[in-house]
Amino acid sequence: MYKISTTPHINSKQTTQKIMRDVIVALSPAIFSALVIFGYRALIVLITSITSCVFFEYVIGKKLKLGNTTNDLSAVITGILLALNLPATMPIWMIIIGSFMAIGVAKMAFGGIGKNIFNPALVGRVFLFISFPVQMTYWIKPHSFDFFNIDAGTAATPLKTMKNLDIGESLSSLTSYWDLFIGNIGGSMGETSALAILIGFVWLLKQHIIRWHIPVYFVGSFAICMMITHWITGNSQYDVLAHILSGGLMLGAVFMATDYTTSPMTKKGKIVFAVGCGVLTYIIRVFGSYPEGVSFAILIMNAWVPLIDKYCPQYVYGTGRK
């Protein structure tokens, strides 16, 4: 007797675990830049965050009888993303609380992988940001924790600097675009180097893990809003390029807004979602009291995903294109 089964009889070699592995590879330049810029302290934050995320996924999965899903590597990614969203000086116990919020509350309580509404790493980050505002905005100068240098000092992030700029003053007198691009600035561990994030983006596209729409429309819509504001006000605190290269915009657009589970399905839906993220980020950065708005923007748009999915369906063959 030979096996009887439904069609198709062959499957692609792609698996959830392989996808996650590719995302980790894509994150590795950002991890590398965090280690270069923030030294051993970055390593401590990363290890703490990854271990506690995987630990919570395992323990809570077992308690809620969701099975052991740690080998799909998604908890590792949440751990990395959470770490990259924190300042290198974050106390360890706070990181563990953040990991619990990310995995326990935002992911496992909803039913585990694929069921969550909000991006787990962002929930963890925002929770920490609201609970521990002092520690979460304590920015050290790059290379404060080089392995042979313990001369730590604080530095304001470019966004903070820009927000407090006087009219006529320009950011470039304080920080060069090049420093912003390679990440030689203060900020969260993985946010600072646009270059590292772009390398990851190229890898994700090459491996067909994500499509280009969300990152490009996110950054694009943000840039257009900012450009108009800059043009109307003439105020250099609205410098478009500086805004794109600083804060969590690049990391958020490439790695957080593109999270499969919490972003829309169709191309049309992805564009609506990304433009929403871009405009909200702009609104928070320009009119809000926080210098940074990427996390909030993505979380707010996450909540809209079911509705976007409903109203942006795929075009069905033979139904007549309008």
């Binding site: 030979y2 096996k3 089964s5 009889h9 499957n11 959830t16 996808i19 899903t69 799909d72 998604s74 585990g112 992988i113 694929g114 069921k115 499969y260 589970t261 399905m265």
Partner: peptide, 12 residues
């Protein structure tokens, strides 16, 4: 010939 075991949908 064996169908692979399915895991959770990740909405990819």
């Amino acid at each position: 010939s064996d169908k692979p075991e399915s895991t959770s949908c990740i909405r990819c």
